[in-house]
Design a binder for these strands. Structure first.
Lengths: 101, 101
DNA sequence: CAAATATATCGAAAAATTTCGATATGAAAA
DNA sequence: TTTTCATATCGAAATTTTTCGATATATTTG
């Protein structure tokens, strides 16, 4: 973890909806309906579910998620026409290690 | 820790200089000259040292530090005409707990 | 008490972020 | 292979943040 990356992560964490997305993704089963095609949450949750739950426009959510992936907070996996997002616990841990003593 | 406070903390952490200030304050003795009046770093570092090291204007640094104190990241203590700032490890820990699973 | 020093606040210009609708791209379904 | 569905990208307006110089406040010092 370096200062530049930590700053980009901080930017992603400076917005209520983006923070909520990270919270929701702690427990996908609890916060989202089950996937119709994929029968599991192994790769997280698809963009459309996050979009619906957020109340923001599709383009805004796509923009958010792309940025969160770019700085490593999320991991994106394509399955057919769907993109699934899950938390990147490794980076999140590295970030919190960086913040604490 | 709640979503609103976490968002405010995230805003403070979304800027390279503010992040650096938090890093510097991990080891005041290492990153700042000794205080002339106060002979210790028990209450952290005075605003003018942080100002000098930052390269930004006095008003900007004051504004930064005030915000960082408002959201709990820093603890401010007055000694005469000096304000000393130190990290609030308790809030920082609560924040990192909030981020991680 | 006047001057000097440290910090805080104010108002405003510049820069960055937010957010959307429109549109493009990519993949599956008809 | 055209249509449909999911997601990504673009351009632009609105909002927020950044940052400064000027000025105010608070405290010490002469």
């Amino acid at each position: 973890m370096n200062l530049k990356l930590a700053t980009e992560i901080g930017k992603c964490l400076s917005n209520t909806i983006r923070l909520e997305i990270l919270e929701w993704l702690k427990e996908p089963e609890k916060n989202f309906p089950p996937h119709e095609t994929l029968k599991h949450f192994n790769d997280g949750v698809c963009v459309s579910y996050i979009h619906e739950k957020s109340g923001l426009s599709q383009s805004t959510i796509s923009f958010y998620l792309t940025n969160m992936e770019k700085c490593g907070l999320l991991i994106s996996t394509r399955h057919g026409k769907w993109s699934y997002l899950k938390r990147n616990e490794k980076i999140i841990n590295e970030y919190t290690q960086f913040l604490t003593k």
